[in-house]
Write a protein that binds this DNA or RNA. Structure first.
Lengths: 104, 104
DNA sequence: TTGACATGCAACCATTTGGTTGCCTATTAT
DNA sequence: ATAATAGGCAACCAAATGGTTGCATGTCAA
């Protein structure tokens, strides 16, 4: 879980996920195109994404194809985001109440 | 957006959000209780959470009360998580196809 | 009014992070 | 066979991160 959050914390990595979401199964070189970063830097990001299970890579000949694995993102949505959405209205109204109390 | 992801990337900060989710409006000292960290470290985490707008603090006399703001978490759920959930099945089936192709 | 309590500020430190460069290996195409 | 292509490995670097300690400030209670 922590690895997933950490992996998502970097904008470059999120953009890599975006690219894979737009077109799945891209090679390393394809993922490097147009980025202001060396291939090695992209490799490091992809390793982190793989370790977080957000990306699965398949070596095919001399190319390495990268596939998005949406499961961990889904899990974060399920186990984390929704938990906080439940108490949402209550939390907001209490916050509002306190902010008003401050101005008395 | 980036600040929110970065703020969520640390387990201590997520646990602070959890504590506020359990009981909203806690003071700094209350939030420090039972944590293996100095008060100053907790302060730093809270600053980061405030900058990401995940927490709003209200000074009340000599105490500072901290309130959870669930809006940014909700936005991440809306704008980011759901986007990846949409293509989920398609992505998974293509991944499966490729993994099988590898074993031929 | 004075001491205790709640928090703030700043300097410092070790480790992690995001990136680089240089070189090596494996596969494909000519 | 050999050159070009795709990727991997390792050492290095600067900056960011997560934490500490020491001291200062503001507020409440006796």
């Amino acid at each position: 879980m922590d690895e997933v959050f950490k992996a998502l914390a970097d904008a470059s990595r999120r953009s890599l996920l975006d690219r894979l979401h737009a077109r799945n199964g891209q090679t390393l070189n394809e993922l490097c195109e147009g980025l202001a970063m060396t291939r090695q830097a992209v490799t490091k990001h992809l390793v982190i994404l793989e370790e977080a299970n957000l990306v699965t890579a398949v070596r095919q000949g001399r190319e390495k194809l990268h596939y998005l694995n949406p499961v961990p993102i889904h899990q974060i949505g399920e186990r984390w985001i929704r938990k906080f959405e439940r108490g949402k209205l209550a939390a907001l109204s209490e916050l509002k109440r306190q902010l008003e109390k401050r101005d008395e």
